[in-house]
């Protein structure tokens, strides 16, 4: 009885102490989690929206397509029977390889033409055009992009056909006429025309930042303008060249309106083939998915290749 009061208090306090201990422990844990979340919050906040966008509209569809591509002969509405590589093996048939090769040729050819034509224009715009007119000229050059590309392609029909504008002019001048309509050349013309503004824009941006003092230094060291161009200007603008080529290559790889309208009877491209698989009579989503994966692969290869050139020795560029 002597210690009953104390005992009582102690007895009362014991659970309280225990409780306090538990609460403290829980608080510590929560604190840790909270701090961890806060550290993540900023990057999540900044990257979150884009990340979700990418996840939903790129990653998930790609995973889906990958799955579909591994189902031979999958038709919409059918349950997935089994997996196999048949779709991919089918692509190796000469018929389809030819389509791939044609698309790659069109894309590569267009890229080279855009580069050859676009570089002088961008060079002149960035380094030689009078400063006052520069912006205006740039806008004028980009103007065609504001019109529908389909309309522009139609315009090329009017120009290129046998009794079209170009031949009228050529005939008036007594020159031999051309018959490029409905041939692969017409496709090159149409695609180059469509994508040239992109190439010019990108090259212009790169050339504008060219340090002219470097060209003076080259001249000072004995380089005539041609040597200075190849040894200084081109290496300095290589990232821009790579970026321009990449953009044109990838977009022209996927274009099939120009081949359809301007090309001849043999103008099947990979994008059209994919379209036929999904929305044409074939309804072979498995094969279409496999073709899509191959297209993605081609694009990725192009990106890897051109990035390698465009990003050479990144630490050497200030």
């Amino acid at each position: 009885m002597k210690n009953s009061g104390f005992d009582r208090i102690k007895a009362e306090q014991k659970p309280k102490k225990l409780l306090a201990l538990v609460v403290n422990w829980l608080q510590a844990i929560f604190d840790l989690i909270w701090r961890w979340l806060s550290n993540l919050a900023r990057p999540i906040g900044l990257l979150g929206p884009a990340g979700i966008w990418l996840l939903l509209l790129m990653v998930l569809p790609m995973l889906l397509i990958t799955e579909l591509s591994l189902v031979p002969g999958l038709k919409p509405g059918q349950p997935i029977a089994g997996y196999g590589l048949l779709n991919y093996l089918r692509i190796l048939e000469p018929t389809y390889l030819q389509v791939l090769q044609r698309s790659a040729t069109f894309a590569t050819g267009t890229t080279l033409l855009c580069l050859l034509l676009g570089f002088p224009v961008a060079y002149w715009l960035a380094l030689m055009a009078p400063k006052r007119w520069r912006n205006l000229l740039l806008v004028l050059f980009i103007l065609p992009l504001w019109t529908s590309s389909l309309l522009r392609t139609y315009a090329w029909i009017t120009l290129l056909r046998s009794s079209g504008v170009i031949n009228l002019v050529l005939g008036a001048l007594g020159l031999p006429t051309q018959s490029l309509m409905n041939t692969p050349w017409a496709v090159y013309i149409g695609m180059t025309y469509s994508f040239l503004p992109y190439m010019v824009l990108i090259l212009y941006a790169s050339l504008e930042r060219l340090d002219l003092k470097l060209l003076e230094a080259a001249a000072d060291l004995g380089a005539n303008p041609q040597i200075a161009f190849w040894r200084v200007t081109v290496p300095q603008t290589l990232p821009g060249i790579a970026a321009g080529c990449l953009l044109v290559f990838v977009t022209s790889l996927g274009d099939f309106v120009v081949p359809t309208l301007l090309g001849g009877p043999s103008s099947m491209t990979i994008s059209r083939l994919i379209y036929n698989q999904f929305l044409g009579v074939a309804r072979n989503w498995g094969f279409g998915s496999a073709l899509s994966m191959v297209l993605i692969l081609m694009v990725s290869l192009a990106i890897a290749l051109l990035l390698k050139y465009g990003d050479r020795n990144p630490e050497i560029y200030s």
Binding site: D211, K213, L214, E216, A217, A218, V232, P235, Q236, L238, N313, I316, Y317, S318
Partner: peptide, 8 residues
Amino acid sequence: SYALFNHM
């Protein structure tokens, strides 16, 4: 500004 060729 020295104008060194930074790609070389």
